[in-house]
Design a protein around this nucleic acid. Structure first.
Lengths: 216, 216, 216, 216
DNA sequence: GATGAATGAGGATTCATTCAT
DNA sequence: CATGAATGAATCCTCATTCAT
């Protein structure tokens, strides 16, 4: 009766305590990640992952119940990276700050790469879809709250619906890492930040916030 | 044994056959579309599609090389629906027009449904990905051109990068049909249109454009 | 949606109506029977059965859900052969009749051979065990009823418990086909019949019944 | 690092180890027996047995070549329990004695339980089958000899074939422990003994033997 | 052309057995 | 000696594709 670790999504075979075993588990996770990115989830077999990690097929099943579970582990470990960041709007130089947040988020996403497999999985794995949707909803709520507070202070556009603005911000942030692909150039985070900020602040407010910074 | 349609004014050999063949092809395409949406692309087998269309497995392969080709046909037939619309910015009441464009686009997308399978395919089918990317690039260019013209007329924000704005508009338009899922409400196209227009027009320009309309 | 045939034990993929298909199904059943007898149930794989029947592995699964189901079909088709016969005790020359019943039963059992696999399966397949137990119980009841009637007529031993006698008769009949293996000779059905009859009739009754026959 | 038991009067190297080893072997045998009964032979893995016995998988293979050998050891250790008893027919109160022999045999069989796995193994393990057949043959011979002697003394039915009677007795004795399952009641050893005795003694002889007892 | 049975390669998973620690 | 992680052959089963009718 191996001990089991109840994670966010499903059961896992006992997570090994031994150092060697932990390393092997890590190697499998890493191999899985790489091959999923390279060939897609369906096209990657448990055997592939195992041999890429330098172990036998059976060893894979010592550490993971199946391919799906390995992926779930991966996602669980990096859920926060997959979520769009939650910028705050009261700070100075919002554009610059947002740009660097975006750049950082983008860099992490690309390093992880898992965002490439999600679209393949969401349609068939409703459990996973729910988990992600819940996480996104939370981010949505946070951003929305902040926007509403900002609105009370008169910092943001009066005539835009905060819900819709929140949605737009999230959609844009979730797609930053693909901007390069479309335009053929690297994403210019400064420009993107300006665009997003335009949805939030009227230009005058933005000037004020920037002035404050300049005065410092 | 080809059936013959012997009419008063001569023979139309094989025309009925062609007609039936075309119908069969259509039935297969339609079955494919439905099943892909229902169960996802990978989970749908050629046999499923054939029997859902009321023909034998082998018949499927008379009309399509394989499952992928059927999907390609589907996409080809409806590529324009899958592409974001190309709004123009010189017209009066831009928000209202954009709203109705969005609503229409969204409706067509949902009726077709194919947008749900794309994410599953793009990672593994680079050819498809290229085709779509090219189509998107074209839309991108069109929108960009229009924005640049508008900029020359001083109608749009001076300080935003047209490329980035174009990218933002497209991303937002491509994700309209998912807005409902996230917020739990139906997408409010009017509000979305307002948000998108904010990225294009300074409020004063917008007022002017609307005034023109009112004067009519 | 293939039609399904609800048998005694479990569901079966559609039983084919086409002649060729039926023959193939029969060939698979026969191959299964032979290989089960030859190598035992567990040692026989679906692939073995398929290639012994001259078809591909996948074909096996067109006709049977799995190995177990093939066996169930076999058993269902021949359940009556597997059950011990139900002799009646009022007739003339009971020994001779019983002997020929036994010989016939034994011959059929050996021709079928399935009795050799049953012991392997009963411990792990409680569903099958129940079906067989129920069938045996029915035979048991029939034999018991007949014995009780005979007892009322004073034809059988007064001092033996009919239930126990029934049990003994069934056990002996179920083991006839193994007598040869133990003694090294062919089962002598005449002698076995005499032994079984001794459990039923006192010698004097037996003489009377035989006399009646002689008088004819 | 072998532990050593250094006593006053010399060394007993490895004796403690041997004792522990013997215990471990016993634990494995016992675990094997329990799991075989519980899940059947095929369904029990070497790993199951080892962990049920509280040792590592590898340790199993230090004590037994494989699962089969463990079972063989078990059978070897308890062969006599598995064999039907060898009643003698000269004693007084044969029915009572036989009844108690049967009860005892039955009890031991049930305590051991191994009889439940034999049917699963005999078809695939001809070596085992031979060993058991040989043992049974020996019992058969013994019973047969005794019957023949009794026949010389005129104690038993003149008209029944001793070989067949021997066979019948063995078959009945081998199936006592299953009588309960079929009739739904506990086996009534007294009645079974009466039935078996009917195959051996004419009623009058039985009375005489019983009288002798009564006279005592 | 249409059919659908047949094919068989390929993926998931298990488990007897070995071997480095 | 004991351990239990690692091995990989072997099984089950599916499904894209072919082909005889």
């Amino acid at each position: 009766m191996p001990e089991r670790d109840e994670g966010l999504v499903g059961d896992f075979p006992s997570i090994p305590k031994q150092k060697r075993a932990r390393e092997k588990r890590q190697a499998l996770l890493e191999s899985g990640r790489e091959l999923f990115l390279l060939n897609g989830y369906e096209q990657t077999t448990a055997k592939d992952i195992a041999s890429h990690a330098g172990v036998a097929t059976g060893t894979f099943y010592r550490y993971f119940a199946d391919k799906r579970q390995l992926l779930m582990s991966l996602l669980e470990n990096h859920l926060e990276i997959l979520m769009p960041p939650e910028p705050s709007w009261f700070q100075q130089d919002p554009e610059g700050r947002l740009a660097s947040i975006l750049e950082n988020h983008c860099e992490q996403l690309n390093k992880l790469g898992l965002y490439k497999v999600l679209p393949e999985l969401l349609p068939k794995d409703s459990e996973l879809a729910e988990v992600l949707a819940a996480a996104k909803k939370k981010v949505f709520q946070t951003i929305l709250e902040r926007l509403k507070k900002a609105k009370l202070s008169g910092l943001i556009w009066e005539d835009l619906d905060p819900q819709t603005v929140t949605w737009a911000i999230m959609v844009l942030m979730e797609n930053v890492q693909e901007k390069g692909n479309q335009t053929g150039e690297l994403a210019d985070f400064q420009e993107i930040a300006k665009v997003i900020c335009r949805l939030v602040y009227p230009p005058k407010v933005l000037e004020t916030l920037s002035d404050q910074e300049n005065q410092k």
